[in-house]
Design a protein around this nucleic acid. Structure first.
Ligand SMILES: [Zn+2]
Ligand SMILES: [Zn+2]
Ligand SMILES: [Zn+2]
Ligand SMILES: [Zn+2]
Lengths: 155, 155
DNA sequence: AAATAATATGATATAACATAACAATAATGA
DNA sequence: TCATTATTGTTATGTTATATCATATTATTT
């Protein structure tokens, strides 16, 4: 799976272009989030990082996360207090997160039409929207079919 | 403003109908959330409650909140770790929250079409959605016009 | 009514998540 | 080089939420 590597390279290029510093700690934290299959929590990241870097403390992780969030390289999942690498940070985007209850997988969805509608709908209520948090919890295809198979066997 | 009172009466009737107990603590916590203008945090509720009820501790509040959330009488705002009274708990609903950065006001919106579209969109990604968290942060009408007036005066 | 079971609350402790504040170090620019 | 800025180290603390077991209240059964 070459994707995590290219994601880091992309992040590096992006930071260079913006004149911000992609330091070893920031790089390493992004790598950890990117190579994990689901979302990661701050203190899990801390535990991992501390193994390689004894000086790591909560501020170490939260500063790295703040940086990565600001640069759009990582998204925060509010309903899980967890963090997910963005796989298309190069364009600004509104996004929706699909969270599986079964396996913990989190997928990033981009339905721009949806975002537009939300903004329009809020506008009718007098609100001008600057940030959207959209998190949809349910079951992914695998977990849905697995549940169906279990039900069948139980008969 | 007679609304908070009727909201409590409505909650009482609903609990009676469902055979669940609307105890004094639960009632009081709902009252506090309902009469507050914006959203309230758990530990603010705790401070308030402790003034009238010395035995109140974190579990006291979190148990009451869990109950009220289960009954749909209160909504949790994930992006603020705060709680908001529902003004139409009688019908099951998906909802969207509009959060003002200026004044902290939170409004509940019900765009059912939006909810339907979200579900359809997620379905195309193989996800079946059971819960939606939609929180839109921006500025309410008052705060937007206030900001505009300030800018005008600054010239 | 008394016994039993189910719910709810009290009480203590601790887990999980996040930031404040200041010192030390490293990178950058004049 | 020297000053400036950005980053990291370090300690402490603030904030949000849950686990656990004891006690009390309410509902149900006998
Ligand atoms: Zn993204
Ligand atoms: Zn799944
Ligand atoms: Zn509601
Ligand atoms: Zn406002």
């Amino acid at each position: 799976m070459p994707e995590p590597l290219s994601l880091i390279d992309q992040a590096e290029r992006q930071c260079l272009a913006r004149g911000v510093r992609f330091t070893p700690i920031r790089r390493r934290v992004l790598e950890m989030i990117a190579t994990s299959h689901g979302a990661l929590k701050a203190y899990d990241l801390l535990d991992q990082l501390a193994k390689e870097h004894g000086a790591a403390r909560p501020p170490t992780i939260y500063r790295a996360l703040d940086f990565l969030l600001e640069q759009g390289l990582v998204h925060r999942i509010e309903s899980l207090n967890a963090y997910l690498a963005c796989h298309c940070p190069e364009h600004q985007h509104g996004f929706q997160l699909l969270i599986c209850r079964g396996c913990g997988r989190v997928e990033e969805m981009h339905d721009d039409d949806l975002g537009t509608r939300l903004v329009a709908s809020a506008d009718r209520h007098g609100f001008s929207i600057e940030r959207q948090t959209i998190e949809l919890e349910g079951r992914c295809q695998d977990c849905t079919s697995q549940a169906a198979a279990m039900a069948e066997n139980a008969q």
